[in-house]
Design a protein around this nucleic acid. Structure first.
Lengths: 339, 339
DNA sequence: CTGAAAGCGCTAACAG
DNA sequence: CTGTTAGCGCTTTCAG
């Protein structure tokens, strides 16, 4: 294996100084004659020179990379399709603009030990927080204290932080859309089935449902369950049905949970939506699987990622975030599961 | 915002040389008295010093980071649950050992333009290739030519490459398990529904099915379709049914496709598995949704990621990969959709 | 138009 | 036990 060529080896080969090579590499037109440029380019080609990003970073203090910390109690932190699509959007938009994405999955409370935090080698950090609002704010403050631009996903803005941008889809608005859909028929009692981990987006959905249901005099109960497998969801909802009887509406925190709910209702001889209306949340391109088709909202996770990347790129360019907050509107996906 | 402290500022504060601080930071016991160590640690604490990874990298030529290139024609390259779980396993195992994961989604043929390739800042590269075998081999050679340790996912080994490790689940073996399950009843004709993008893992599955079916005198047809949405899958399989009639068995390239197949069969008044047996592939923790429950194999995607990370860590430690190939065995998930 | 040189933050060899 | 120093590869200023 030959040594990797450096500016110096190229300079040697082309009989010029490394400063000249640097100019050519960086496409700096001023101060290089066409003739030398050609020669240098030939040497670069011949040696197969590729610039060393580390040397460049050390000098320029820019790393062409963005860090993403996903705070999640599950080691399979990427299992959730929302996260998955967000990462894809972020990564694509970054890659397209010559930036890399440094991915970290971190357990709640372990953020300060993560090497993303302990050693900086990125131009900006993205944070996908989970936990209670207090825990999330603590995480935001920790990362913000690093003095790097920060993008926070899915959470509501915090006042006292500098150089931070909040990007999320309009989860409360999406919930209102679904609630209004459901309310096309008269209802008395609704149940929302949520995971036992507090997620900011879910808080917003609860708020959206509550707003509409309360205004229409509909009682809203919350049922919490472990969402890691459909078994746990089933027993969670089954417990509620046994204790409180059958409600008019079941809204799932997401599509997976809603499908599990439809399953157990069907198993008990109930018909959706005749006996119970069911709605999901966060439809993704590949989710036309349930019967009856789920009434849900189309997730903007991918766009959230793209928006964040664009905001970061722009921030790096101009020294500040243009907007402090981006809220992407959601769209109803009508289905046969409601109303 | 205060300047970020460096070795120098800590040294100044503690009235020692930067060499001494460096030793303390790196936990080098030899040559530092307990007293100075304490003083230095106090200075580090007070200044909030964190080592700069870039300076360290430049000097030590190690980056504590691994690159992952996912070659996929879809911009939503992370949509596939296999990829998702693989990334999670890889990322967790790497993070746990102080390594970062630099993620790149790249379009087929664009690999050489990717900045992961063009600028090295990682200690090893992982490649998740797609396309024809030729295209995949070209990609492997390209990356291998960088002179960095390389891990290739899901593909069969290539002979002439140095410092490469191949990690995959036993897709052919998994297909044989399913085929044998299906063959518990007599069959004449089977159809495999596959995506129009060639994936190495799918080639292996086809080979596994073919082996068993051929040995038992069962004809195996292939139907190709766009797998990006269930609509396209439905029309693909519908076309086959119209042209060739109903086969005894339909095997899907993955669970999503199999579920779409069950849908369309049911819609046509056919009963699974009475009229047609259906099998899937790559069950993930959250895939108990179809009725009848799908006969499939449990994917080892997460373990593939973990295995790769461990292999890389070991390679970086010892200078060479211990094994050239890791093939993780698959396990049947029996279901009611077959036999 | 071209080159010499300083220095980004760090490690490690070597000198004291 | 501690400090001095020479770079790692690069960008950029300043002189020629």
């Amino acid at each position: 294996m030959r040594e990797r060529p450096t500016l110096r080896s190229v300079a040697l080969k082309a009989n010029v100084s490394i400063a000249t090579v640097s100019k050519v590499v960086n496409g700096i037109a001023a101060g290089v004659s066409e003739a030398t440029r050609k020669e240098v380019e030939a040497a670069i080609e011949e040696l197969g020179y590729r610039p060393n990003r580390v040397g460049r970073s050390l000098r320029s203090q820019r790393h062409q990379a963005v860090g993403l910390a996903i705070v999640d109690p599950s080691p399979r932190f990427l299992a959730d399709p929302f996260t998955t699509n967000l990462v894809a959007g972020l990564c694509n938009q970054l890659n397209t603009n010559g930036f890399g994405l440094l991915l970290y999955g971190v357990m709640p409370g372990k953020l300060s030990e993560s090497s993303l935090i302990r050693q900086s080698e990125v131009d900006a950090i993205c944070l996908n927080p989970s936990g209670t609002r207090d825990e999330r704010e603590a995480a935001m403050e920790l990362v913000s204290g690093l003095g790097q631009p920060l993008v926070v996903f899915q959470d509501r803005p915090v006042q006292n932080l500098q150089d931070v941008c909040f990007v999320r889809q309009d989860d409360a608005g999406g919930a209102e859309l679904l609630a209004n859909e459901v309310m096309k028929r008269p209802r008395r009692r609704a149940v929302m089935v949520i995971a036992d981990i507090p997620w900011p987006a879910v808080e917003n959905r609860v708020a959206g449902f509550r707003k509409v249901f309360e205004a229409r005099g509909v009682q809203l109960d919350l049922v919490t369950c472990d969402e890691t497998d459909s078994q746990a969801i089933s027993s969670g909802i089954a417990g509620y049905l046994d204790d409180h009887g059958v409600p008019d509406v079941i809204v799932g925190q997401n599509d997976q949970i809603a499908i599990a709910c439809i399953d157990i209702l069907t198993a008990r001889g109930l018909e959706v939506p005749r006996d119970v209306a069911v709605t999901g949340y966060n439809a993704f391109p590949f989710t036309g699987l349930s019967r009856p088709a789920l009434a849900t909202v189309r997730s903007r996770a991918y766009d959230v990622g793209v928006t964040a990347a664009s905001a970061i790129l722009e921030r790096l360019e101009n020294g500040r975030f243009r907007q402090r907050e981006y809220v992407l509107p959601l769209e109803l996906v009508p289905g046969n599961s409601a109303p």
